[in-house]
């Protein structure tokens, strides 16, 4: 139970870091034309999905997506849907491959890319003056991917440990 609370709190800290700490280290602040969108909570959710179970990824994705929508968005439901799907899809990879570092990293890359791509396509669908795909890819999606991957690698060890604890507690409760 303690591990579960710890893990949820950690995800909350990630979520609040997105809108506060991360804003001071974006490339735009230092005069670069790249834009990175911090998705730290999503990184945590993908880890949860990989190390605890895809059902967990779904629930955490739903909760944090809803939080994102309510705090910043106008339309409630967009991020709830996209993060929920991203969380669940990350867990599905384990049905085909065994869990290893390579699989974890490639899953992270794919899901983060897929999430950015999904939001971009949604936005392209609704906005009348669409932004160039090429430009979005090189100036937004790829820098976002790189920044979030760096973050994911930095927090890999502690998050993994916490996830394993949560899983152990869960299995013990089942027995």
């Amino acid at each position: 139970m303690v591990a579960r609370i710890k893990f949820t709190l950690l995800l909350l800290v990630f979520f609040f870091m997105e809108s506060t700490l991360a804003q001071f280290i974006t490339p735009g602040v230092w005069g670069m034309s790249y834009e990175t969108i911090p998705r730290f909570a999503l990184v945590g959710i993908i880890y949860a999905s990989l190390f605890i179970g895809r059902r967990e990824g779904l629930y955490y994705g739903m909760a944090f997506g809803l939080l994102q929508d309510m705090l910043y968005g106008n339309v409630i439901g967009v991020y709830t849907l996209s993060m929920m799907v991203a969380g669940y899809m990350a867990g599905l990879v384990l049905m085909i491959f065994h869990r290893s570092v390579a699989v974890v990293i490639s899953t992270l890359t794919l899901v983060l890319f897929g999430h950015e791509w999904l939001t971009y396509t949604l936005f392209r669908l609704f906005y009348t003056n669409p932004v160039n795909v090429q430009w979005t890819l090189t100036n937004e999606i790829i820098p976002t991917l790189v920044a979030n991957m760096i973050f994911a690698i930095l927090v890999y060890k502690p998050v993994r440990n916490l996830c394993d604890q949560v899983l152990q507690n869960k299995e013990r409760a089942h027995e």
Binding site: S19, Q23, T26, E35, L71, N74, Y120, F123, V131
Partner: peptide, 14 residues
């Protein structure tokens, strides 16, 4: 300002 959400869709300050 207490927070900023940067995303192309919805660039908001809290």
């Amino acid at each position: 300002v207490v927070a900023r959400n940067t995303s192309q869709w919805n660039d908001v300050l809290v």
